[in-house]
Every structure is written in structure tokens, then in C-alpha cells.
Amino acid sequence: MGESRSDQRRSDQGREPGEGSAEAGVTTGALARRLGVSPTTLRSWDRRYGMGPAVRSGGRHRRWTPQDVAMLEEMCRLTSAGVPPAEAARAAKGWSDPLTPGTGAAADEPVSLARAAGAEPLGDPRQECKGLARAAVRLDAPSVDDQLTSLVERHGVVVGWEEVMVPALHAVGRKWETAGDRYVEVEHLLSWHISRVLHRASGPVGPGAPATGAGPIVLACVPGEQHCLPLEALHAGLVERGLPTRMFGPAVPPEALTAAVRRLGPVAVVLWSQTRSTADRPLARHIAATTWGVKGARGRPAVLLGGPGWAGRPEPDMLRPAGLREALTALTSLADG
């Protein structure tokens, strides 16, 4: 049945601002929210690179068609990957293929000496971080995953984690703190994809250490600690170095952790604590004193305290590395005996 004019008016009144038919297009504000950029950025791209709507209606209000939206989504994807805006605009409009990030000939984007020498440098970590954060704000999961995967494949876990992943998480966290709860979903999406890429970088779990070698490295969060993403980065870095590990993840009960240490005879145990409220020092001392093996030849693990929760008074005979790189160096040394 046909729709009456009154029904049509009610339908129009129920729409969100900026919505409409495909022919009418969306407003600049609605498109900016969808892409995760500001309306000022869209106007700047129009002025500088001709990235405006193909059809302009009368008056001051712009309407963006589905074709316009697709073009700008491609522009955002390319700039997030590090392609200079001018090159990204040409590619998004189908004028040329995008240049590989960092190899553009624009006068304001010089090629680094390291790249000219044939190395594989990270380039500008700030640009990589911005691109990742922008893709996360747009909730562009494919772009986030692609950027993270490429980052780890090209530069390894340590560089990817310290120079891009952590700064991007901090940037999203600051945005969340200043905007109430508006960006919680952004942080969750970014964290999940980082975890996913770290798991892929770790690869399949091998058979473990040889019978004559040192035991594996045990990684666990202390009871009550659910924040285990840095521990996942450490696990990925250890596997990248070919070291045997046993990852137990968040909130491991003391009895279960003690039993695992006695069964495995690990060369080291890493205990992660994100906050002081979860840093269980008696548990750390208990694990450090846990022994295994026959009488007269008993072994005990080295204990590494990871995370900001352990700040303050040091624990005797326990290591407290300052970051991922230092933790990997210490654990590699222990594993090598």
C-alpha cells in the first residue's frame, strides 16, 4: 500500500539528523562521525585535494552520496596506513596507485637515510601510531588488523609493541578519559586486535625444552589481575626468540600456580601486576622459595616482577625489568644458563 503524506512526515521526523535516502546523501557532520574525523578535516580535504561531494546542492549544506562516502573511506584507510594525504587523495579518486608508505616523493616527506641504505626502519613511529589510532576510532577492524599484522611482520614484536601499540593504546585511553564513556568501545576493539595479532605472532606452541635443558618460562598474572595484554606481548617476544614458555594468563589462583611450578620446574616465573592492589608480595616470595626435584638436587625458579603494580620497595633476589626489551634480555640470559 502507498504511504500517505502524514506517514511520510512521521517517518522523516523519526530519522536521525544527517540520515536520509541514498539519493539525498548524508551531512558532513554525520559523515565525519562515521569516519572518525572532524568536519574541519573533511572541509580541508575538499579545499586542498578536491575530495568534496560530487554533487553540490544549493545553499551551504553539503550532501555526500554513497560514492563520496566510499571515496573518503579509502582516503582514511590510506592515510591511516601512512600514505601522504596528497597521494592518498589521488589514489582514492582513482588517479594513481598509492605509493608505499614512506617512499613518497613529496617535498615535505623526505626518504630516510636508513631506507635509502636498504634497511627496514620503522620510519616515523608517531605516524604509525596516529594511523592505528585513527583506524580504531573509526572502528575499522580490517584496517586495524592489517596495520598490526604488517607492523609485527616487518619490525618484530618488541618494536611494534614499544613504539606503536603502547602509544596508540595510551592515545585512545586519553581520548576516553576526556570524553566520558564515548570511546570505551574503541579501546576494547584495539586491545582485542592487538591480542589477536600477538597470538598469531607467537605461532603454535612447540614441544617445550629439551630434556637436558632448562625448564620453560612460566608467565602468569597474580590473583585478581585481569590485565594481561603486556604479558601476551612478552609471551610473543619469547616465542619469537625460540624460548619455551607456559602462558597461564589472568588471575591465576596461588594453589594452581604453585602446583604448575612444581610440575614444570621452570627456569623463571614472571608475575604480572598492573596495580598495587593486586601486587601480592607474599605470593612472589612463596613462588621464589618453591622447589622441585630429588633431595640434594633441588631447583627453584628465578622470579621476575612485571608491571607497575610492583613499584616501590624491591624484593630481594627478584628481578624487576623496566620494560619488554629488558625482560626479554633477562629471560634469554636465564634460559641460556
Score class of each variant (00 low, 15 high):
Gly173Trp: 07
Arg174Met: 09
Lys175Phe: 05
Lys175Met: 13
Trp176Asn: 03
Trp176Gly: 00
Glu177Phe: 13
Thr178Leu: 08
Ala179Pro: 10
Gly180Thr: 01
Gly180Arg: 06
Asp181Lys: 15
Asp181Glu: 15
Arg182Pro: 04
Val184Asp: 09
Val186Phe: 12
Glu187Met: 13
His188Asn: 04
His188Trp: 01
Leu189Cys: 05
Trp192Glu: 09
Ile194Met: 05
Val197Tyr: 07
Val197His: 13
Leu198Val: 07
Leu198Asp: 09
Ala201Met: 04
Gly203Cys: 00
Val205Tyr: 15
Val205Trp: 15
Gly208Pro: 03
Ala209Trp: 05
Ala209Glu: 05
Ala209Lys: 07
Pro210Gly: 08
Pro210Thr: 05
Ala211Trp: 08
Ala214Cys: 12
Ile217Gln: 02
Leu219Glu: 03
Leu219Trp: 00
Val222Thr: 14
Val222Asn: 06
Gly224Leu: 01
Gly224Trp: 00
Glu225Cys: 11
Gln226Cys: 11
Gln226Val: 05
Gln226Ile: 11
His227Gln: 14
His227Arg: 12
Cys228Trp: 11
Cys228Val: 14
Leu229Phe: 02
Leu229Pro: 09
Pro230Tyr: 02
Leu231Pro: 03
Glu232Leu: 10
Ala233Glu: 09
Leu234Ala: 04
Leu234Gly: 06
Leu234Arg: 00
Gly237Leu: 10
Gly237Lys: 08
Val239Gly: 01
Glu240Ser: 01
Arg241Ala: 05
Gly242Phe: 11
Gly242Ala: 10
Leu243Trp: 06
Leu243Cys: 14
Pro244His: 03
Pro244Leu: 04
Pro244Tyr: 06
Thr245Asn: 13
Arg246Ala: 10
Arg246Ser: 11
Arg246Cys: 10
Met247Asn: 15
Met247Val: 15
Phe248Ser: 11
Pro250Gly: 02
Ala251Val: 04
Val252Tyr: 01
Pro253Asp: 00
Pro253Val: 13
Pro254Cys: 08
Glu255Leu: 11
Ala256Glu: 13
Leu257Phe: 01
Leu257Ile: 02
Thr258Gln: 12
Ala259Gly: 05
Ala260Val: 04
Ala260Leu: 07
Val261Phe: 02
Arg262Trp: 07
Arg263Lys: 06
Arg263Cys: 01
Arg263Glu: 08
Leu264Ile: 09
Leu264Arg: 03
Gly265Cys: 11
Gly265Gln: 06
Gly265Tyr: 03
Val267Leu: 03
Ala268Pro: 13
Val269Ala: 06
Val270Phe: 08
Leu271Val: 01
Leu271Ala: 01
Ser273Trp: 04
Ser273His: 00
Ser273Met: 14
Thr275Trp: 07
Thr275Ile: 08
Thr275Ala: 14
Ser277His: 14
Ser277Val: 12
Asp280Tyr: 04
Asp280Ile: 11
Arg281Ile: 12
His286Lys: 13
His286Pro: 08
Ile287Pro: 09
Ile287Leu: 01
Ala288His: 07
Ala289Met: 03
Thr290Ser: 09
Thr291Ser: 06
Gly293Cys: 02
Gly293Val: 00
Gly296Leu: 07
Ala297Tyr: 12
Arg298Ala: 06
Gly299Arg: 05
